[in-house]
Design a protein around this nucleic acid. Structure first.
Length: 255
DNA sequence: ATGGTGGGCAGCCCA
């Protein structure tokens, strides 16, 4: 089974690329972030015609998440319980015997900003929720745009980025505390090329120069992680004309 | 080089 995560940065713009990509890669489950569409405008018919079931949690202009799957999805949850938030960043569903939690973690803007404090509060509430989810669903996958580069291998120029949003210690600690409750970053279970990133700024030729960060992650519970047989980043999708600023990340599982 | 580019919605916000 192949499961993927992709921040599409507007599903309206990226739908043709997504449909091409689904045809070429045939993933079983796909978590999308930054769909930027209200639910009434979600292209469910086009995605259905491509052979995928879909659940979505969107809003106008900002945020928005969706899960696509070849087999039916059930038990959708659209927010972190007991965390009051009007930003649509969370979608969990069950599929093919696995529980999937799709996340668009807040960007955080810059340490010290209101958005940064919101990011840390959000991550704290997420951890409380995921601990309970893990107890209920041992076969749990948590994937999406985490907006945190786990360590310096995931940063093109760690010295230039010291203390910046996406790499700051409080953010990395929050991610570490999440992993501690029982998840593994499956990308690092395998040999990977150096300088492997999943996001590159649109500006300053960052993709051409491979000035990126690895902030799109697939976390597997301790039960599922040993079933993972590979994980890769699809840079080809990022090189397309009018591409998203994120590349898809794909993991294979022997399930 | 404190800019640069892209998406969304209508002169900025957000990434």
């Amino acid at each position: 089974m192949q499961i993927a995560t992709w921040n599409v940065n507007s599903l309206r713009v990226r739908l043709p690329q997504l449909l091409d990509w689904l045809g070429a890669n045939q993933p079983d489950i796909v978590a999308l972030q930054e769909t930027k569409l209200p639910d009434a405008a979600f292209p469910a018919a086009e995605i259905g015609a491509a052979g995928y079931h879909v659940v979505f949690n969107g809003q106008k202009t900002y945020n928005g998440v969706a899960i696509l799957a070849r087999t039916p999805l059930s038990g959708a949850v659209i927010e972190i319980p007991s965390f009051d938030d009007d930003q649509r960043r969370v979608l969990a569903a069950s599929c093919a015997g696995v529980r999937v939690v799709n996340l668009y973690v807040p960007n955080g803007q810059a340490p010290g900003s209101d958005k940064y404090e919101y990011k840390l509060r959000w991550l704290k509430a997420l951890r409380v929720w995921l601990r309970a989810e893990l107890a209920q669903y041992p076969r749990l996958l948590v994937l999406g745009d985490f907006n945190i580069a786990p360590d310096d291998r995931d940063v093109h120029d760690p010295e230039a980025w010291v203390g910046s949003v996406h790499v700051s210690e409080p953010e990395r600690e929050a991610l570490g505390e999440l992993l501690q409750i029982g998840f593994l970053d499956v990308f690092r279970q395998f040999d990977q090329p150096p300088q492997a990133f999943s996001w590159w700024d649109y500006r300053a030729g960052a993709f051409r120069r491979n000035h990126g960060l690895r902030i799109d992650l697939i976390l597997a519970s301790r039960v599922l992680a040993p079933r993972c047989t590979g994980c890769r980043i699809d840079r080809l999708a990022r090189s397309a004309e009018r591409a998203s600023d994120h590349a898809p990340v794909i993991a294979s599982f022997d399930i």
